[in-house]
Design a protein around this nucleic acid. Structure first.
Lengths: 148, 148
DNA sequence: TCGAATGGTCAAGCTGCTTGACTACCTTTG
DNA sequence: CAAAGGTAGTCAAGCAGCTTGACCATTCGA
């Protein structure tokens, strides 16, 4: 496979990813969740199941724990999350989503569903599923790096 | 198609895109091009064929022309690009890549080729080509938005 | 030809991230 | 079971990249 093909794939991948991020963020904001940034969405995916500590969040986002702590400050100030005492470790604090945080997460899922539905309209449902499967197989396990 | 599937696709897509960006940048830096940021690569893709004006670059990157101008300052200072008088518009200046800028572009293509080759090893060449074709069909035409 | 639009830069300010230093708590080890 | 080192989190200061606002030079359009 030639480098030019690799670049075409890379360009398409990054363009689609950039637009998806843009669309999800715009859609969530349009649904009344003002002041949300894309980075918040990446944090939500880590906080969603059962909450997480600041350090865990920092690893997930690939930033320092200070940056993660500031992001949590922001989420708390905007009513999307709250800090609770950690059940087993008195040093740590468990960051969990508030009801508003869950509502924002659901809104993001809705918007993502809409965008993917557009793709279904273009290349068909089978191809979109194939896309999901292929990407799922080459996706890395490590931290999500939302910024470049 | 359910929202949960759309989210799985979105997560995989963003994870792959994030890792690709990370890998390309790290690889280019490892080949001796110090101080390059991912945003520089996105600028290169617009400057590569025949150069571009600052305003064109700003549209391509989805930022203000002031930000694009500062980025060009950075590229010039690091020896990747230079400003030339515009052939037909005395207001404008044409930003073109230097030889070092072209070398950096070629290095990025090499690294992208290596990463894509890894994907070929995981899902096979046919699947990677299919990935490129499907992504190419749903990729937007507008500006690349490298930041989220 | 003259007013409006465009290309570019300078300057100031903000935001999100980093490094460094510190406290509180946990865990390991003799 | 006490001391030493490691870990969770925050505070503080600094920096890099972006934004808005103002401005000049040049081009376009009525």
């Amino acid at each position: 496979m030639h480098n030019s093909e690799a670049m075409a794939l890379s360009a398409a991948l990054l363009a689609v990813a950039g637009e998806l991020t843009q669309r999800i963020n715009a859609g969530v904001v349009a649904r009344g969740f003002e002041g949300v940034r894309p980075a918040h969405g990446f944090a939500f995916t880590r906080l969603a199941p059962d909450g997480a500590t600041v350090t865990e969040l920092a690893v997930h986002l690939g930033v320092t724990k200070q940056a993660a702590s500031q992001l949590v400050d922001d989420l708390v100030r905007k009513g999307f999350a709250e800090r609770r005492p950690h059940p087993v470790d008195a040093r740590a604090r468990l960051v969990v989503l508030t009801e508003r945080g869950w509502a924002c997460t659901r809104a993001a899922e809705e918007v993502a569903g809409e965008v993917v539905q557009e793709w279904v309209g273009v290349i068909g449902e089978g191809e979109v599923r194939a896309l999901r499967d292929r990407l799922g197989r080459i996706a890395p396990y490590g931290p999500i790096r939302p910024a470049w």
